[in-house]
Simulated scan of single mutants.
Amino acid sequence: MKITLVTVGKIKEKYLRDAIHEYSKRLSRYCKLEMIEVADEKTPDQASETVEEQIRDKEGERILKYLKDDMYVITLEIAGKMLSSEELADKIEKLGIQGHSSIAFVIGGSIGLGREVLKRSDYSLSFSKMTFPHQLMRVILLEQVYRSYRIMNGEPYHK
């Protein structure tokens, strides 16, 4: 299976890059992983809803360029469905059985995802009702995908 992460913005902190590299290396045993970063837009302080919407749409256009027709697209959204680690593993496994060989996880920028990206989404996933920095979310997502593969393969993984 191919797992693609399409994310907005660059990772600036070395410790986050190191963690992403570590989970990418671990995941290479289980799937083909591709990580795509699209440029983020500068969001002015006190931006109006209209300006924020324009920013989300611009970032969304960049994201959509990388979402192929055959990809099953999972967007990370606060309002999405919350799953346990076992349920995420089951979701990924069932997608493979149903013939989806390519899954794209999409993490938006600091103000969320544009309308067209949300329309393209096949599944909305939430990790929490809390808001996390989008850079940290990459690490959390990669760890959970890795944990999913360990669960699917019946391999031990710390609880």
Rank of each mutant, 00 (worst) to 15 (best):
L88P: 09
L95F: 06
L76G: 05
L95P: 05
A89C: 13
R115N: 12
L67Q: 03
L95Y: 08
G99A: 10
K91Q: 08
G96W: 01
G80Q: 05
G96I: 00
S102H: 13
V73N: 00
I78K: 15
D69T: 13
L67I: 04
V73F: 01
G80R: 05
E77V: 06
I103P: 03
G108F: 06
L76W: 08
S101L: 14
I97A: 01
H100I: 08
G114V: 03
K81H: 09
V73A: 02
K94M: 08
M71S: 14
I78E: 14
S85W: 03
L67V: 05
D70L: 08
L67T: 02
I74C: 12
D90K: 13
G99I: 09
I74Q: 10
S85N: 02
S101W: 11
E77Y: 02
L76M: 10
E93F: 03
V73H: 00
K81S: 11
G96R: 03
V73E: 00
L113Q: 11
D90C: 07
L88G: 10
L83A: 09
K68V: 00
M71D: 15
G114L: 07
A104F: 05
S85I: 02
M82H: 02
I111E: 14
I103A: 04
G109H: 14
G96N: 01
I111P: 14
S110W: 03
H100K: 14
L83K: 11
H100N: 14
L88F: 15
